[in-house]
Design a protein around this nucleic acid. Structure first.
Lengths: 340, 340
DNA sequence: CGATTCTACCGAAACGTTTTGGTAAATTGT
DNA sequence: ACAATTTACCAAAACGTTTCGGTAGAATCG
C-alpha cells in the first residue's frame, strides 16, 4: 500500500542504496541523480518508515520521560522544557506517567530491556542502585532531573542554599519563631530534596544563633492538603510561629488556606514563603524560592544527548541555582512592627 | 549483543516460529514445550524487540497526542486522563507539544506519513478539511478532544449549555448587567468553544428577556492577561456590569486580579464566574462551570481504540455535560441585597 | 488396518530500511 | 596512453520479529 524505497528506486531508475544515500545525504552521489531522486520522492510523496529505519540504525529518535503525577505544576513546567528541547532536536517525547509505586517499578524494570527510546529522563524519582546498574548495563542512557543518584547524571537545584535563603530572609525581617513544613523524603539515597532543605534551614538558624525548636519542624505531604494539616498543627501551638517556610508552593498555599480559615491575616499576622515558583505562586502573590524548572527540562535533554553520543561518559552532578522571589506573603512580624 | 529469539530457539531446541507462538500464546503448542520455552526465556532474560515486532505487525503500541501548551491547566488534566487510560491498555503516549502554529502544521503534515503511532488524539486543535482527509486516507485513526470537526470523531463538552447555565445562575441571583469575556475563536469551523459559549449566553439573556448590550461583550486571549485587560475595560464603563462571566478560569482569575487592583470586593461588588474547573479555581474559590477533563482524556483514548480496531467506523460527535460549581465569587448583587 | 484429518512444529519469507562489498566508469598521475 | 586511484552506483546482506507453507507423526474414522 504505502510507497517504499523500492518504488522510488524503480521509478527513478536507480538502486535502493542510492535513494537511501540521498535521504541521508551521505557519501558521494552525483548531483544530477540526486535531483532526479528528490524529484521522484516529491512526486510519489515518499516518506521513509521510521520503524524500518530504527530496525537497522538502532536509534528510535525518541526519548522517554518517567514523570510522576503529570498534573503536578512542577512536573508540568519541567515537561514543557523537555518538550521544547526535544522538538528542537527533532526528537519525540514518550511519557510514562507514574501515579503509583507499582507503575514506577514497572517502568524501571521494563524500559531497559526494550529499546523503545534512545534515552531516559527521569523526573523527581530516584532509581535504586540495582535499577541504575541495569540502565548502564543495557546501554540505556539516563539522566535524573530533580533527583540524585551517584550512578547517574543528576540535575538538581541547590536545595540547601534555597532553603537557607528562605529562612534567612525571614530572619532578616525580624522573625524568631519560624515554622518549617518539610515534604516527605522519597529518594533511596541520603541526598534528597527534603533532607537538603532541612539542612539549609538548620544552617540559617545556626548562623543567626536561633535556638532550634523541634516543635516547629513538621513533615507533611508535598501537596496542598499536607500544607493545610501541618499549618493547622503549627498555628495551634501555645507559642505559634510568626512565619512559616514550606518546602513546596502547594504546601504554602495550604498554609494560606488555613490562615484564611483561622482569620489570620497574611503577612501581618503570619508570613509565608514557599518553594518552587510555579505559576500559581505568582497568582497567589506568594513569596517563594524559584527553581528554573523549564531550564531543568532543557538541560535534562541536552545532557541526555551528550550521553547518547558518547555512551562512555561518567555520571555527573549538576547544581542549578534558586532565586528568592519576594511577593506579598512575607513581611516584618507584627510585634516588631508595632515596637518601631 | 542482545539476546534474540534465535538464541531462545536454539537453547530450547525448538524453531523460532514456536517461540514466537509461545510469546503470543497463539495456535497450538504442546504444553511441555511451552513450559520449556518459557523457562529458557526467563533464564536468558529474553524480551522481544518491539521495533522488530512493529516492523511486521504494523502496530507500534503507541498513541500520539497533539496538545497545545502542555502547561495549560486544562491540557494537563486532559493529558492525565489520556495517560491513565493509555497505560491501562499497555499503550505508550508520545506527546507533540505545540506552542506555535508552525509546530501544529508540521505535526499535522508529517504524522500521517510516518507510522510512528497507531492513532492520534488531538486536543483543543482543529485540523482543517484537507488535514482530516489526509488522516483518513493514510489510515491514521484520529479523535478530537475539546475540538470539533465533521470529518473526525470529536469529543466536546456541551459548551452552549454550560455558558447558558453560567449566565442563568447569575440572572437568578438578580444580576441584570452581566459582562461576558469570550475567548478568541480558533477552529476553522463554525463549531468552536467561543462561538458555542456565545450562543449559550444569548440564550440565557433571551430567555430572561434581558436586553443585549454589545458593550458588555468583549473578546480576549484565553489566559490570565486576557481576563485582566478585558475586565479593566468592562469595569471602567459608565454603567459597569455587576457580574462577569469569563470563558475560561484563567480569564476569570484575571478578573479577580483587576478587582483586587481596583479595590472592588468580590462577590459583594462584582460577581465572577469562570469556565473549566481547573484545580486553580478551587484554590481561588472561584465559581465555575466544570468540564470533566480527565474523563475527556479517558474517553478520548477509548474512542481511539475503537477506531484502531475497526478502521471503518465513521466520525461521531460526543457531547459531555458540564456542571455548575458554586463557590465564593458569586452572590446577589449589592443593590438588590440592600433593597431587601 | 488403510485412508484421512489434526496437531505440533520447522524453516523460509516478509516487513522497509541502512550498510557493505563489489564493480564499472570516470578521473588523475606520470 | 596506460596504470592507479577515485567516484558513482548497484545489489545483497542484515536488523529481529511474525506469519505462512509445508511436513512429519499422532489421532480419528470407516
Amino acid at each position: 500500500m504505502a510507497v517504499t524505497i523500492y518504488d522510488v528506486a524503480r521509478t527513478a531508475g536507480v538502486g535502493v542504496g542510492t535513494v537511501s544515500r540521498v535521504l541521508n545525504n551521505s557519501q558521494s552521489v552525483k548531483d544530477s541523480t540526486r535531483q532526479k531522486v528528490l524529484q521522484v520522492i516529491a512526486q510519489l510523496k515518499y516518506a521513509p518508515d521510521p520503524i524500518a529505519r530504527s530496525m537497522i540504525t538502532g536509534r528510535t529518535g525518541a526519548i522517554g520521560v518517567i514523570i510522576p503525577f503529570v498534573t503536578r505544576a512542577f512536573s508540568v513546567e519541567v515537561l514543557r522544557g523537555l518538550a521544547n528541547a526535544a522538538s528542537k532536536l527533532g526528537y519525540e517525547l514518550v511519557i510514562y506517567n507514574v501515579e503509583e509505586n507499582s507503575q514506577r517499578d514497572h517502568y524501571f524494570n521494563q524500559l531497559p530491556m526494550r529499546r523503545r527510546v534512545d534515552g531516559l529522563v527521569i523526573v523527581s524519582l530516584t532509581p535504586d542502585e540495582e535499577t541504575a546498574a541495569s540502565f548502564l548495563k543495557n546501554g540505556l542512557p539516563a539522566v535524573l532531573v530533580d533527583a540524585y543518584s551517584p550512578f547517574l547524571t543528576s540535575l538538581v537545584v541547590n536545595n540547601v542554599e534555597g532553603a537557607y535563603m528562605a529562612v534567612k530572609s525571614l530572619i532578616e525581617k525580624g522573625h524568631q519563631r519560624i515554622g518549617f513544613i518539610n515534604g516527605i523524603s522519597e529518594g533511596t539515597f541520603k541526598f534528597n530534596q527534603a533532607n537538603d532543605r532541612l539542612i539549609g534551614v538548620h544552617r540559617a538558624f545556626g548562623e543567626a544563633g536561633i535556638m532550634y525548636d523541634p516543635e516547629l519542624m513538621v513533615t507533611a505531604e508535598w501537596n496542598r492538603a499536607g500544607g493545610q494539616i501541618a499549618s493547622r498543627e503549627l498555628l495551634s501551638l501555645n507559642n505559634p510561629p510568626t512565619a512559616i517556610f514550606a518546602a513546596s508552593d502547594l504546601q504554602a498555599i495550604g498554609v494560606l488556606e488555613t490562615a484564611r480559615t483561622l482569620n489570620l491575616s497574611v503577612p501581618e499576622e503570619i508570613s509565608v514563603i514557599g518553594f518552587d515558583g510555579v505559576e500559581l505562586s505568582e497568582i497567589m502573590e506568594l513569596t517563594t524560592i524559584q527553581q528554573p524548572m523549564q531550564q531543568m527540562g532543557e538541560m535534562g535533554v541536552a545532557r541526555l544527548m551528550e550521553l547518547v553520543e558518547d555512551s562512555k561518559k561518567g555520571p555527573e552532578l549538576i547544581r542549578l541555582d534558586t532565586k528568592l522571589i519576594e511577593r506579598r506573603t512575607t513581611s516584618v512580624p507584627k510585634w516588631l512592627a508595632s515596637i518601631k
